[in-house]
C-alpha cells in the first residue's frame, strides 16, 4: 500500500534521512522504531507532505505522491496522528473532530463517523463542547486518534502515541489501535516504546541515524542483538 524508495530528506543543510526504503502492505500494522533524532518523525512527515524529500519516491496504492501537498494526501486517506497530539486547544472537541473530517472524501460521512468516534471514546462524548485545551494528555490522544478516524483513514500513521501518558492510558490507547487494526485499518506505528510495539506489530523497521538498521518480522527484529542492545538496554 505504501512504498518508499531511497528517500533522502532533511531540514536546510542538515540531512536527516539517507536512502530509506520501506513498505507497508494493506491491512498490516508495521512498527517504526528508533531513538530520538533517528529520523522517524521526518519520515512520516515526508509521507504526510509537510516535509519535502530531496530524493527518492513515495507511492501510495501505486500512485506517486512524492511532492503532493498535505491536504491532497489527506484526501487520499493517508492520515497522520502527530506527535504531541497537536489538538486545537481553543476549539471545542466537536469542532476538533469536525476538522478531522474536513477533507472532500470524508465530509459526507461526518455525522456517522462522529457517532462512531464517540462510541469508541465515551469520555469525549461527555466533554463535546469543552475546549480541547482543557483535556488531559490521554484524552487529547483519544481526540487526536478520533480526528484520524473522522478523516476516514485507510492508513493511520501514529507518531509516538504513548508519549507522556500514564501506563493505564498507554494500554488503553494501544488496545484501541489494535481494535482499529482488526477492523481493517492499515497502521504505521512510530514509537520509542519498543515492548508495546513488538506486542502489536507484525513487522518492524529500526531507524538509526537516518538509515534503516534492521527490518523484518517482529520476532526477528526483537531478537536481533543490535536491537536488544540499543532499545532494550540488554
Amino acid at each position: 500500500m505504501i512504498e518508499i524508495e531511497s528517500l533522502v530528506a532533511g531540514y536546510g543543510q542538515v540531512p536527516v534521512l539517507h536512502d530509506v526504503s520501506l513498505k507497508v502492505a494493506q491491512g498490516e500494522l508495521v512498527g517504526l522504531l528508533g531513538a530520538n533524532n533517528a529520523g522517524k518523525s521526518t519520515l512520516i512527515n515526508c509521507l504526510s507532505g509537510t516535509v519535502r524529500p530531496r530524493q527518492g519516491r513515495i507511492r501510495f496504492k501505486g500512485e506517486d505522491i512524492t511532492n503532493l501537498a498535505p491536504h491532497k494526501i489527506v484526501d487520499l486517506g493517508m492520515i497522520q496522528v502527530p506527535e504531541g497530539r497537536l489538538v486545537f486547544p481553543q476549539m471545542s472537541i466537536r469542532d476538533n473532530l469536525m476538522l478531522g473530517g474536513i477533507s472532500a472524501r470524508a465530509r459526507k460521512q461526518r455525522r456517522q463517523r462522529l457517532e462512531q468516534v464517540l462510541e469508541t471514546f465515551p469520555r469525549l462524548q461527555e466533554r463535546l463542547d469543552q475546549h480541547a485545551g482543557t483535556l488531559s494528555g490521554g484524552e487529547q490522544q483519544m481526540l487526536a486518534i478520533g480526528r484520524g478516524m473522522m478523516a476516514g483513514a485507510e492508513v493511520l500513521m501514529l507518531d509516538e502515541p504513548s508519549l507522556g501518558l500514564s501506563p493505564l492510558f498507554v494500554q488503553y490507547i494501544f488496545e484501541t489501535i489494535a481494535k482499529m487494526h482488526r477492523m481493517g485499518l492499515t497502521i504505521l506505528l512510530v514509537e520509542q516504546n519498543s515492548s508495546l510495539t513488538f506486542r502489536h506489530a507484525s513487522r518492524c523497521y529500526v531507524l538509526e541515524q537516518g538509515r534503516v538498521a534492521i527490518d523484518g518480522p517482529t520476532e526477528v527484529v526483537r531478537n536481533h542483538p543490535a536491537t536488544r542492545k540499543a532499545y532494550l538496554g540488554m
Binding site: S48, P82, Q90
Partner: peptide, 22 residues
Amino acid sequence: DFGRQIRAVNQNPKAAALMGVN
C-alpha cells in the same frame, strides 16, 4: 467549515495541514 479551517490555521498551521486543510 471555512471558519473552523481559519481557526485551525490560526492555532496550529501544521496540525491544520495534517487534517486536510489547504
